[in-house]
Amino acid sequence: MSAPAILTPDAPIRPASRAPRPRATVQHRGAILAFVLPFGLLFALFYLVPIGYAIYQSLLVIEREGTFGQAREVFGGLTQYVLVFQNGPFWNSIARVLTFGAVQVPVMLGLALLFALLLDSPLLRGKRFFRLAFFVPYAVPGVIAAIMWGFLYSPKLSPFSNITENINFLSADLVLWAIANVVTWVYVGYNMLIIYSSLLAIPTELYEAATLDGAGQWRIAWSIKIPLIMPAIVLTAIFSIIGTLQLLAEPQVFRSFSSAVTSTFTPNLTVYSTSSIPNFNLAAAFSVVLALATFILSFAFLKFTQRKEAK
């Protein structure tokens, strides 16, 4: 999963406030500009411009004359997008990561929530140790983690070869879940930390009141903690959905030692393979469609959870 974005609650992309509030800070305009400028500049340079360039590239097609004729990029409208929608392997790869996410994300977040609640409960000893222990895998770069697990799964070379020789974790049936295991291993601690920090923000008076009312730890966790940290759980869920759709490093590493991982295993691998042809225009169109799909899916999830909350 790709690195999570830094939370930027006051990013300038937020549309103007809908409540008409009088603004009295006009005299600080210069200062505001000075503070926003560094971020705004980098944001434009490294987010907006590349996105614009990708969209622009996706609208071009190649023309040339003769077998080695010089290529000209000309405007082709939505030609590349038509190819994207006709591309079977790409949609298969989307279906594959959705299957992956439907299983892996709940498992990972369930574990993260469980660990966070354990860390937060007065029952557990050695909290500092466990907090670090759960978080350490996140410090291992994703590629290294994939290589390491690749060794553990390897039929002949694994330290557990009496298992891996009988169950081939790198086969077509299992490799998706073998990768899911790697991703879970890496990201459980990270998600746990987000949920845990949100648990720490709950005022302790609530627990006191609950204890006075006779609630045990289970009851407190279920009826107080989980409802209060729901926004954090939703946040981790959205990060995970985005990360799932963008799976690249792990399958890319697994591709070299598993017969089951093809060059179009995940949507991002498809983009990578397409750009290595090199067909940058089609790769750009894939990227735009993937980003839109990611956006729609995450937003739908957000709306869904909000509506549930409102009920």
Binding site: S2, T8, I13, I51, I242, Q246, A291
Partner: peptide
């Protein structure tokens, strides 16, 4: 969350752009 989402989605795009 919504803002983080927007930001992260744009990471999705920049990551792939050439």
């Amino acid at each position: 969350v919504a803002v983080a989402l927007l930001t992260a989605a744009s990471v999705a795009l920049t990551g792939c752009a050439t």
